[in-house]
């Protein structure tokens, strides 16, 4: 456990070294936030039958940009480079399981990335936009205190789902050397089924059901529904239970996979 905590701290410190990159990412996320909410606004001109209001959809979208770093678009870049170069052999010299080490790293990468970025987007969408008269497409405060607590409770869940999925991609790479294919597929699934592009409540029947089943919704849809009041706080236990099942499945599956791969491991050169 202490070994994993050390791995977490090391990775967190490395990510913190790249604050300028985080600022650039915030800029990009702000632009995408604007594009998405403007598309929503156009839709809602005739949105009489929409399942959620424009204010809710806009808030949901801005939250998506604020917590974008939870998206699973690829492996942890540090681990990707370690596996590619064979340096990952080092990890086997640490007195701890490989999966725990990787999960600790992925969690640090995700949490620090989110931590460096979400504040600026929340300020922009929640304070700046209303102040300049664009409150209708801005971020509204949580509809209730209970909803806000449920949102907060879902954040560690989002981090764990994001972490286990991220290590899952690394597992693919552990087998295939390159993670490019797995990353491309994961990026598409993650963006769509977490509600980043179109809020999940606006999706049509079967797609919405798929999104509500898959683990990706923990990366955005679930916490954002609590914030915007689309889900009542009473829905929290069910949400926690379903995501805990996913975290367990992903974690145990990943750990078993890593263990099974170790006996066939080859590290070439030097």
């Amino acid at each position: 456990m202490r070994a994993c905590l050390a791995a977490f701290r090391a990775r967190a410190r490395s990510v913190l070294r790249y604050r300028a990159a985080a600022a650039a990412a915030v800029f990009c996320q702000a632009i995408f936030g604007f594009i998405l909410v403007m598309i929503l606004e156009t839709w809602y001109r005739d949105g009489s039958g929409a399942p959620i209001s424009l204010a809710q959809a806009a808030s949901y979208t801005w939250l998506g940009q604020a917590f974008l770093a939870f998206q699973v678009w690829g492996p942890d870049p540090e681990l990707r480079d370690l596996i590619r170069s064979g340096e990952v052999a080092r990890d086997l010299l640490r007195p701890t399981g490989l999966y725990g080490l990787w999960l600790a790293r992925a969690l640090a990468y995700k949490l620090v990335s989110v931590g460096l970025r979400f504040g600026a987007i929340l300020v922009l969408a929640g304070l700046v936009l209303p102040a300049i008269g664009l409150g209708s497409i801005g971020l509204e405060p949580p509809t209730s205190l209970g909803g806000f607590f449920c949102f907060l409770a879902m954040l560690p869940v989002a981090a764990l789902v994001s972490g286990t999925l991220t290590v899952g991609i690394s597992c693919f790479q552990f087998r295939q050397v390159s993670a490019a294919g797995a990353s491309a597929i994961a990026a598409a699934l993650s963006s769509f089924f977490s509600g980043l592009v179109i809020p999940v409540p606006l999706l049509a029947g079967p797609l919405r059901m798929a999104a509500e089943f898959l683990p990706f919704r923990a990366l955005g849809d679930l916490p954002f529904r609590f914030w915007t009041g689309v889900l009542p706080p009473s829905a929290l236990p069910a949400a926690l239970a379903s995501q805990a099942a996913w975290i367990l499945a992903l974690g145990l599956g990943g750990a078993a996979f890593v263990r099974s791969r170790l006996s066939g491991l080859a590290v070439a050169g030097g």
Binding site: A3, A7, R9, A10, R13, S14, R17, P95, G269, G270
Partner: peptide, 25 residues
Amino acid sequence: FGQRTQLWWDLPARDSLELLGDMYG
């Protein structure tokens, strides 16, 4: 391994040494 590194590239050497101490308990 002379051709590989076990130090964290972006961190001062001292941080790496301390983190390794933690890793090995």
